[in-house]
Design a protein around this nucleic acid. Sequence first.
RNA 1: GGGUGUGUAGCUCAGGUGGUUAGAGCGUACGCCUGAUAAGCGUAAGGUCGGAGGUUCGAGUCCUCCCACACCCA
Length: 1013
Amino acid sequence: MTADTTDTSLPDYKDTLFLPETDFPMRAGLPAREPDWLARWEEMGLYHRLRASASGRPPFVLHDGPPYANGHLHIGHALNKILKDFVVRSHQMLGFDSRYVPGWDCHGLPIEWKIEEQYRAKGKNKDEVPVNELRAECRKFAEGWVDIQREEFKRLGVTGNWDAPYLTMSFDAEAVIAEEFMKFVMNGALYQGSKPVMWSVVEKTALAEAEVEYHDHQSHTVWVKFPVVTGPYDSYVESKKQRPDESGEDYAGRLLRIELTELQELTLKDLNDRLKDATVVIWTTTPWTIPQNRAISFNPSIAYGLYRVTAAPADNWAKAGDTYLLADRLAEEVFRQARVEGFEKVRAVTADELEAITCAHPFRGLDGANGEWDFPVPMLAGDHVTDDAGTGFVHTAPSHGADDYEVFLRYRDAHPELKMTHNVLEDGSFRPDLPFFGGAVIFDEKGKEKDANKRVIDKLAEIGALIARGRIKHSYPHSWRSKAPLIFRNTAQWFVAIDKPLDDGKSEHGRTIRERALTSIDKLVTWVPRAGRNRLYSMIENRPDWVLSRQRAWGVPLTCFVRRGAKPEDADFLLRDPAVNARISAAFRAEGADAWYAEGAAERFLRPEHDPADWIKVDDILDVWFDSGSTHAFALRDRADGVWPADVYLEGTDQHRGWFHSSMLQGCGTMGRAPYKTVVTHGFTLDEKGQKMSKSLGNTVAPQEVIKQYGADILRLWVAQSDYTADLRIGPEILKGTADSYRRLRNTLRYMLAALDGFDAAERVETSVMPELERLILHRLAILDGEVRKGYAEFDYQGVFQKLFTFATGDLSAFWFDIRKDALYCDAAASPRRQAARTVMDILFHRLTTWLAPILCFTMEEVWLARFPGAESSVHLQDFPETPAEWRDEALAAKWARIRGARRVVNGALEIARRDKLIGASLEAAPVLYIADPDTLAAVRSVDMAEICITSDLQLAGDEPPAEAFRAEDPAIGVVFERAEGQKCARCWKVLPDVGHHAHAGVCGRCESVLRG
RNA sequence: GGGUGUGUAGCUCAGGUGGUUAGAGCGUACGCCUGAUAAGCGUAAGGUCGGAGGUUCGAGUCCUCCCACACCCA
């Protein structure tokens, strides 16, 4: 029949070919095999071997942000540690001594809870357990999780000094944390202040947000009048001192935001008096906080008005003729509550007017008050005020509310009379000397409401300050342990002053912690991605002082003493003695921080210089953010394998508020600058729809499951394929896609191995004698070399992988490999063409395996060992190979871009022929290629285009393509299909005229000569 | 509610300073090969560039507002 019919009587030449040969399996079986490679690396001591061999190189240190040791890894941990591993491995292969010391955060509340929970299950009371016994249990608990997480991290393929990680609870770390804290004691940044915290009067302790449960609670509500004592006119008189040129009319106009003409007969004095007759009405659900009131908050974006009562029952609290300041939206409801029968709005009141008035406390000047409440109550603007409920004015007691405290911090400099109060004692009673209410109890030891609310309400009613009262059932915080209602209570806390100039001789980048931090952010740190910079900057710019103290047990204590009987503002309040500090750190180093809680600790540390009777040992512990903020000291500064500052910190974006932040403050306070040079941040892991993962939604992806189903390399590939600077999605479909990509790449690598079967160094040929096709691949490798190095240096793993993957599929599998199959299989072993191809294949092998090794650390080891087996062999001992500059050949690349363009047109034409059943394989074709463009024609003419197109022959014509020719986009290139003439070579399958005219039956000339040898 | 950020084919991502029919890989469909074979090659389909306004001769790219999602804070 036709030429492609194979005569079965011909000999089988298959054995005379160099067909690809490899044991490298197509299917990876990663879940089963990865543990073997891990064991191998462990056995050969890979990490330590690298340390030894890289000892002379410039160090590169990624400092590990410590995960919390209290549970199995989730996908976020995996993302984080895999990215870190990319950084560490790639920098090692870029030529650094890239070290990685993993760490764990071990102290803190969540672990303490777990132990407490265990106690409760056993019916034990935590408060009766000696502190150091509890601490020992916490330590054991953390140790257990460190061991579990270490194995889980290692399973991801993460390399590092797993034998000697850092732990925030090691004795050494505890000693350093205390030493770092004592630097703040010595440099003057530490001070004792106070802050309202959630407080349980039952347990007599502060509670963290996570220990609070919200339940319905019945509260009293009161509407209370605060008389205006200073009106706008009074403020004008004050203002006159500052701005002597401003007229009363100008001032009024400014305040009222109206044209002067509208003032007309309404004199400023009238205005003043009318407002001065008025009262500001506040609403609260905690009447017991009224004695602690120090200010009234309002919101400038709410509309307020001056209202007058026109009709009310004679015995009503709100009387006809009274004038009130209220939010417009709430006025009607307030009057309804106050049983007012008629009211009118006198006029609108501007925010500037409100700001210009001052009120008095309702208890001001009362007989028997001893002047307790004789202070001005300023009107303060605050966004927390709404007109959803109440009056639009919020009674502000800085010691008893979070918003109230915020307002206090914001305005304390402008209003020196704004003070914290200390009226409520630990047991929820008023201090005995508080006028009228001394000894009154808010909640008793069982959590039951007592007389404080009632006594305050009665007093308000008695003096006519109340216009309404009621009850409300609402969600209210309760203790998770005792279920008793909580109060916000002002408690003594320890702060680090952010804006205090420090006398530590480390002021190159600023005198205060804030200045140093802001300078660090701007000048000393590189942010990847750049947006991270703004995020931290605005946080540091606006943050208040750092609260260090926690009323807890599992942590490093605030190792300081305060003088008995002294006040926090006294100069000698804090003990500052290097000798004492030295004894503390020595003890911690030997015994851990438990030494602070041991019997006789105060005597041990204070003597002989100080009398223990004069000093009180502080028993609070440090916020765990201080622990992790100090890791740079014990893991970078003090370790032989550390450097300071770190080259990179890499964590999720949430750590702008967390570790990046606390490390910055700590570093600026003790070292004068940020402890890092570069900060890399990654997003969060979401499900396939971009939603947050949660157990209840059932959309979680556990790393352990992915490893079991696909293997760690697939998880690593998922990371590399994602844009980690934004949030990352993961789910079954995405993982399947990742596994598909992996398989495609794996087969390309497998082919490379198979083509290199039996390759010997002696086969290598010089670049200069290689065909252009091979030199084109070398050019691509030279370009890739630059891109890969740049990508790794810039932490762009997605870019690196995408370029390599596209190269592997587009340039190799679909192009070079496909074309070179003929030469590799059918040429003689010593053919220059085949040797050149194998030489480039070998070069390719070294580059692809090393370039991909930081990402696919298991698979690249497998590929490497398939060629270089041996106990001492590992791809991870290699660096990225140097690339000879002469490989780059832009002119060649430009020329081949034309050739490949023409090839695509040929492919298109062959596809038509296939569709029409004229051919199957491309070797059955011998098309005519028309190229009108002289440059393209010259390019194509200079190569064997049939070889490039994998056809048996190809005619080239420098003419406009005829009308019937196949064309793609470019009208200057066309293809007229022709079948190849002759017989199919039984050996190489090309269809050639000379087949059958040689000594060996059914072969072509090339194969004949190969067979002759 | 505030701050920060993200939103381009089913999936993962490209698309300096605004400029012809918005690209790649994977996946899908179809075809070919059977000497990479639970592979390989080719061809094709597939996109209101989150939405609505605006600036401009012209916007995925600039401006405004809105929507969705996420992180941090309240």
